[in-house]
Write a protein that binds this DNA or RNA. Sequence first.
DNA 1: GTGGTTGCAAATGATTTGCAGTCCC
DNA 2: GGGACTGCAAATCATTTGCAACCAC
Lengths: 164, 164
Amino acid sequence: MLGDDKSAEGRFGEYLKEQDLKFTQDRRLILREISRMDEHFHAEDVVERLRGRGAHVSRASVYRTLPLLVESGLLREAPSPEKPSHYEPVVGSEHHDHMVCTECGKLIEFHDPELERLEGEICRRAGFRPRFHKVEIYGWCEECEAREAGRMEARESEGNGHGK
Amino acid sequence: MLGDDKSAEGRFGEYLKEQDLKFTQDRRLILREISRMDEHFHAEDVVERLRGRGAHVSRASVYRTLPLLVESGLLREAPSPEKPSHYEPVVGSEHHDHMVCTECGKLIEFHDPELERLEGEICRRAGFRPRFHKVEIYGWCEECEAREAGRMEARESEGNGHGK
DNA sequence: GTGGTTGCAAATGATTTGCAGTCCC
DNA sequence: GGGACTGCAAATCATTTGCAACCAC
């Protein structure tokens, strides 16, 4: 979640002012809806939830607002092997990264301060000023790895012993 | 570049066999074209270059083949703030990651063995078997940072001293 | 006031897909 | 031979956009 609405609205309001943009009713509604989500979601989810709540916010407004929320640091794009862009709330300073299982699609979140430190170090060396980052490790989760190993074993004994 | 065609074709052929897929003429042509690219590119680039070369490979085949090349480890998706998916060749074991300037779009490649080691360590702890990973750091490159700093200074003195 | 915003629906544009004919193993 | 593969063009589908009415500041 985005923490209490107060701080999120404050942050967003600040960002909008900086950009000479307005904190309209629609933007407020979208922000509030997103504050209630703590899973990953995509644009259409927001549209549906607002509809379900009886709020009159058009699809276009949602699509126009999500990028602003990303820019303001309240949201970030989550890794999505799928087509529609996925977002996730940024919880205060609690940052995490992802491992994505390419077999079953499971998403594992992790956080490692050492990794953060190292990245900062690398940026410093490159004269680069980091604002946010994304670390995605793709591979097999424990279960899929085990399943895969089993399958491989089976294939081997089949190949060695008796032909089919 | 993908190194000499031999090893790339070997690797792709192996992958295809594993998946019970065929190493067709089209797939070979696409692989060869990609072996000649060393920049980032997207699907349409491959289509155009093949066309220009007089090869009859349909757009659909290119779109169907690129994911196979990614799966086989010969290509990987590059970070793209833009819509069309971008790819880049994987050069042997030479792995690198990216810093993306959100102002000017510049892409800075970097490689850090310590970062690799640390990620491996993190995966081990999580029981996750990594196959490949992606590190993208977004922020301001040196030039944009400087420009931004200058602008901020200007704004300040404007605010303090004399009105507009 | 007046410029940014919104809603709608039409436009876009990358990617996918159905299907008949073709090719690799 | 038979299942994979290909080409084509039509279909998808998330996202964007033009424009007139509207609202925050």
